[in-house]
Amino acid sequence: MLTVNDLHASYGAIKALHGVSLEVEEGELVALLGTNGAGKSTTLKSISGVLRPLAGTVRFLGDEITGRKPEAIVKKGLSLVPEGRDIFGSLTVAENLRLGAFSSYERNRYQEDLEEQFALFPILKERFNQPGGQLSGGEQQQLAIARALMSRPKLLMLDEPSLGLSPALVDQIFALIETLRDRGTTILLVEQNAERALEIADRAYVLKNGLIKFSGTPQQLESELDLASVYFGGEEGMGEVTV
């Protein structure tokens, strides 16, 4: 479904990706793991068109989408839930959700999709006319995911959905991701919380200094790699400054 081949990206002079390749098949939940600065978010930004990659290709549903505008990529069915719950604080919950629906705007579908989000996220129905900025952290994360779902994405990319949430809310968010997977949504999940991510993932990639260091099933990852080494160093080159 999604094929990323030899992706290079940089922020000005600082190179963040040195040839990332990964694949996501339809119906899969793939986790992309790695430390701070390993290039996880950069990978998602490059795929979604927010960041223009230097080299490499991104293919989605058979078409090359490398370097296309974000709005064109969203229209193709690839949605990103950005890091830090990028909801629109001064817009109401209703307006945030309406924005999500623009890429596939059909009025009759809108109401139907809205009902679906209410079923998944009952709190959003209660808060429907409140500004997004007045929602709690967990509610904002739910809104961010619901907003992405409004565009009926074929592939949903989640960037650190558990970041900065209390443990109880983290449970809630992971349960939700499982629900989405069980309903057949294809998901590419970026997480720092590797253990939790591996519990629900079908496959995983480990990113280190802008390169894929490992790919396989969670079981393989646990047997072949010491998770601690991924996160706290120990392997070759682990002590280097990460970009």
Binding site: D86, S90, L99
Partner: peptide, 14 residues
């Protein structure tokens, strides 16, 4: 209005 709140998030939303 979405772009006023957060230009980058808005463009990520299409």
């Amino acid at each position: 209005r979405a772009s006023r709140d957060d230009r980058f998030a808005a463009s990520a939303m299409g």
